[in-house]
């Protein structure tokens, strides 16, 4: 490509389609980010992610869809809204992270943090089934799907003994409505 600038990390394509797609889904003006780094400074998980929150917005501005969508950062984001609260440009970065995750799933990109995605899927499948989350079934499903079978097993046992984990699932009555609600999640 004639106008592409190549470096070891980035190929700047100048293609704005990706930025436009994420801006539309998140309702945020990503172009207004001026890279101050305030979001990254307050982010509880940036210390352990592959790219930082301000790099996420910069890569979106540069049209680097792949680098962002396969990153661990978008999956480690816990939605704590610290970045959203502090951004001097009023970018709601938590919403941008939501949009990026949604697009990465739609495009079939492997999650940069597979267990986090598996957790979210297990949680939602519990809600879809019964309208509420029954911890023991949800944790069971997560453990089977992630094959992370033994972590926190003593913690679970202690909570059980304290009567903190309900044995029977609680189900809502109107599960037909739940089906319709889950149709709003478009996967492609």
């Amino acid at each position: 490509m004639a106008n592409a600038v190549a470096s070891d990390r980035l190929t700047v394509t100048g293609n704005k389609d990706f930025q436009t797609e994420i801006e539309k889904l998140s309702g945020q003006n990503i172009a207004s980010c001026y890279q101050c780094g305030e979001c990254t400074a307050g982010c509880p998980v940036a210390y352990t992610a592959d790219i930082t929150p301000n790099q996420v917005t910069r890569l979106v501005q540069l049209g680097q869809a792949d680098d962002v969508l396969k990153s661990s950062m978008i999956w480690l984001c816990v939605g704590c809204e610290t970045c959203t609260t502090r951004c001097p440009r009023k970018v709601d970065l938590a919403k941008v992270m939501d949009a990026l995750r949604e697009v990465s799933v739609k495009r079939g990109i492997a999650s940069g943090e597979p267990n986090v995605r598996t957790f979210h899927e297990s949680f939602l499948s519990a809600v879809q089934r019964s309208g509420r989350v029954h911890e023991i079934s949800m944790i069971g499903e997560y453990k089977l799907r992630s094959l992370d079978l033994f972590s926190d097993i003593f913690l679970g046992a202690k909570m059980f003994l304290k009567g903190k984990l309900a044995i029977m699932p609680s189900m809502i009555k109107n599960r037909d409505e739940m089906k319709k609600i889950f149709c709003t999640r478009k996967r492609s």
Partner: peptide, 21 residues
């Protein structure tokens, strides 16, 4: 007959599901 709000997982995976719940 309240239902789960979707918690973090709802909006993390789908904007519309995270609102509909």
């Amino acid at each position: 007959d309240w239902n789960c709000c979707g918690a973090t997982s709802g909006h993390a995976m789908s904007r519309e599901l995270g609102l509909a719940l």
